[in-house]
Design a binder for these strands. Structure first.
Length: 220
DNA sequence: ACCCAGGGTCATA
DNA sequence: TATGACCATGGG
């Protein structure tokens, strides 16, 4: 390994290895900010492929807007997002979110908010927890917030870089203090972690930590 | 048939 | 504050 890489802390080193291996991810998938926000709610504990179908249904029904989601019944909405799982819960969550979103004046108004206030307000919506809020803050409002998900936790635990029993906010604080506060960096990093988790033992002939850790047990 | 997926809420102790 | 039950589809 080059001398340059050796100077980086582990959190930077893993980032560069992932980026070298998988390349630029161009996240979040979605054509509009609103679509990204809907996707963030629909993908809660759910495979993305199931979310894509739900979003396509909403598009085909001309319902992928806050106004339309508020206009149709919760049953109708649940039917459209059926493939995303938890459809009754998520239909209510989408309505809760759209109600909040419209009341706050939509994207242009929300974009003016300071990050702390915006995060608190997002978390006040029933159905939006820390990870969903941070997806929206990072990928829609382009704030330097590091998203912690189950993959991040698992990977860095296996790499021996974090303790097992840290809470969401504690982990976020660690990542945000180990890395410079940079929206593009956090955007790419989270996307790389998710991509890595999906492909490490399926399409790639390596175990999860092989390409990231010089002492990976899977390397024999 | 089983396991997991880009979580979050609510009831209970 | 800390667990556990619950939500539910679709692919491996």
């Amino acid at each position: 390994m080059e001398e340059k890489e050796a100077r980086l802390n582990p959190f930077h080193r893993i980032y560069h290895r992932l980026l070298d291996y998988y390349g630029h991810q161009d996240w979040w998938p979605g054509e509009t900010p609103f679509e990204v926000m809907v996707g963030a709610i629909l993908t809660q504990n759910t495979a993305w492929t199931n979310v894509e179908k739900a979003i396509n249904n909403l598009k085909r029904a001309n319902s992928l807007s806050a106004d339309q989601i508020m206009a149709i019944s919760v049953e109708e909405l649940a039917d459209l997002i059926r493939s995303a799982g938890y459809f009754n819960v998520k239909a209510r969550r989408l309505k809760n979110f759209c109600d909040w979103y419209l009341f706050q004046g939509g994207y242009e108004q929300l974009a003016k908010w300071p990050t702390d206030a915006l995060r608190k307000s997002l978390l006040s919506v029933n159905g939006i927890g820390p990870e969903t809020a941070d997806d929206i803050l990072l990928y829609v409002f382009e704030r330097p917030i590091f998203v912690i998900d189950a993959y991040t936790r698992r990977l860095f635990l296996r790499l021996g870089l974090i303790e097992p029993d840290l809470g969401y906010e504690e982990l976020r604080r660690i990542f945000e203090s180990e890395l410079e506060k940079n929206t593009q960096l956090y955007n790419e990093y989270h996307a790389l972690i998710v991509n890595h988790a999906k492909s490490f033992c399926k399409t790639r002939p390596v175990c999860e930590t092989c390409i990231l850790n010089d002492h990976c047990p899977g390397k024999e």
